[in-house]
């Protein structure tokens, strides 16, 4: 039963990922990527990481992808972009296939490693948050600082260009 769900969600994740990178329109791409993230969230749940699975849906499929969609629709005009790199395709295909072969070689020459049995509380909010807020609380605080700096940087970079003297300067 578990294997069935693994192949179902895993196959769907790979298919939706392939569709994501082959769409011409970035908005269509973003919706397919959301579908891919939902499938990956199901796989996270199968790995007993329930809390991370919910966060994957809320943060990735929710917040980050809505942000992508917002920016894509804000920019518009997808026709100006050529689909891919015409002349370099043989070279970069070779590089991609070599990378795939190398990674596959690294993971397939090992024995089958089954998952050990674990307690029911594994992956629960209590266990993860104890790890996060007791053992790694300093990194947690630094992450908050990182997000603050990112927000300030994003607002500074994307602020409205100054159109006239005094405007923008005083209101930023």
């Amino acid at each position: 039963m578990e294997a069935l769900f693994f192949y179902l969600f895993g196959g769907l994740a790979v298919i939706t990922a392939l569709v994501t990178i082959t769409r011409r329109d970035a908005v269509t791409s973003a919706f397919w990527l959301i579908a891919c993230f939902l499938n990956v969230a199901a796989l996270f749940a199968m790995l007993s990481a329930q809390f991370i699975a919910v966060m994957q849906i809320l943060i990735y499929a929710g917040a980050i992808m809505v942000f992508f969609l917002f920016v894509t629709m804000f920019l518009g005009e997808p026709r100006r972009v050529r689909l891919n790199r015409g002349r370099a395709i043989p070279l970069i295909s070779t590089v991609t296939v070599l990378l795939l072969a190398y990674l596959l070689m690294r993971i397939t020459n090992t024995q089958h490693r089954g998952f050990p049995s674990i307690s029911d509380s594994y992956g629960s909010v209590a266990m993860v948050s104890r790890k996060l807020l007791v053992d790694y609380v300093f990194l947690f605080e630094v992450t908050g600082l990182l997000l603050l700096v990112a927000v300030i940087g994003a607002v500074y970079v994307a602020r409205k260009p100054r159109t006239g003297v005094g405007e923008g300067e005083g209101h930023v």
């Binding site: 578990e2 990956v40 689909l83 790199r85 990674l103 089958h112």
Partner: peptide, 27 residues
């Protein structure tokens, strides 16, 4: 039974698809 290797294989596939998306596309 689904083990660690299955997840690693799936992860490799998704990663290489991501790499292909970065180096093939211009958008």
């Amino acid at each position: 039974s689904v083990g660690l290797n299955h997840y690693l294989l799936l992860s490799v596939l998704l990663f290489v698809i991501g790499v292909a998306g970065v180096i093939f596309r211009r958008n």
